[in-house]
């Protein structure tokens, strides 16, 4: 059964359209990255799933239960890290987890949960004294209580340093391997690229693409990136390369390295052109297009 099903979900605030007919489906056992610049409507979508916001049109379901009409049972199998939360003022980290354990009628040991997210040393301190990163870890821990079948995480790595973010990613992989669906939003591409089985890209409230990372790469036309070290480089040569058919962008770094993005077919033409101009090619590498470039291509370069 699909963990998340959205059918044409729209949300308008007055004249502003925050979500425009978003339809998608997320299956159990996959990690789905929900990507988009700030303000694209990612949190609004998650808020509809959690019934914090009511859709103007369309409907959403978690495990076949309507998020609005049947919200409580829809959330029973879900662990959540919402946007814009704050921890309870006078509860310790341990008490936070215990509150979730009671609420979900689960039997997790709060100490083990805190250990897993790496804040057991701070278990008995008031959570309001935690740093932003520790709060994120705490709320992620709360989301893990009761072995949920879906993790719904809004920007889970905010406030974490790179190694913290990597720890979180490995937890998410463990959860996926256990069979849970993981749905998380991010505006940070590396996070999504590193871990997601599928990606949805949201732009101005519209879902502009849903695919695997490889699929996105293909659909954008090969999107190869060439890194060419040349002996000497003058502006005329750069211009000439820019003029080759199939070349999208050309930039120069370190004075003598050309970075060229182009279609697969144009690779040789670029090298031939350099030869013809008498440039001395010292080294030649290709890179797959990163999600970042794909993202820019999809969202018209307006990366937040």
């Amino acid at each position: 059964m699909a963990a998340i099903t959205a059918n044409g979900v729209s949300k308008r605030y007055g004249t502003v359209t925050a979500l425009d007919r978003v339809s998608l489906s997320v299956e159990e056992g996959e990690i789905f990255g929900f990507l988009g610049p700030n303000g694209a409507g990612k949190s609004t979508f998650i808020n509809v799933l959690l019934d914090f916001a009511r859709p103007t049109d369309g409907s959403a379901e978690l495990f076949g239960r309507d998020c609005q009409a049947d919200g409580v049972s829809a959330r029973e199998r879900v662990g959540v890290l919402p946007d814009g939360y704050s921890v309870f003022d006078r509860l310790t980290g341990r008490q936070h987890v215990a509150y979730v354990v009671r609420s979900k009628d689960a039997d997790d040991d709060p100490a083990e949960v805190l250990e897993r997210v790496g804040i057991s040393a701070a278990a008995d301190r008031p959570a309001s004294d935690y740093s932003k990163g520790m709060k994120q870890r705490l709320v992620l821990g709360m989301a893990l209580v009761g072995e949920p079948d879906l993790l719904l995480l809004d920007e889970p790595t905010t406030g974490l340093d790179p190694s913290g973010a990597a720890e979180i990613r490995s937890i998410l992989r463990e959860e996926r391997d256990r069979g849970a669906a993981v749905f998380f939003s991010s505006h940070i591409l590396e996070q999504v690229e590193a871990i997601c089985d599928r990606v949805g890209i949201l732009q101005d409230g519209e879902l502009v693409a849903v695919d695997t990372i490889d699929g996105l790469r293909q659909s954008i036309g090969g999107g190869t990136k060439l890194l060419i070290d040349v002996g000497e480089l003058d502006d005329a040569t750069t211009e000439a390369v820019r003029g080759v058919d199939g070349v999208e962008t050309v930039t120069v770094s370190d004075g003598t390295t050309l970075e060229v993005t182009c279609t697969n077919d144009a690779k040789m033409d670029v090298v031939v052109e350099l030869q013809r101009r008498g440039a001395d090619v010292m080294n030649f590498r290709t890179e797959e297009a990163s999600l970042e470039e794909m993202f820019l291509a999809y969202t018209g370069g307006s990366r937040a």
Binding site: L50, F52, V72, P82, G84, Y85, S86, D89, S103, K104
Partner: peptide, 17 residues
């Protein structure tokens, strides 16, 4: 106002509860 309401309502608690 603070946002801890969202943590409670993320759990299987309805607004009525």
């Amino acid at each position: 106002e603070s946002g801890s309401l969202l943590l409670s309502l993320s759990l299987p608690h309805g607004r009525g509860d």
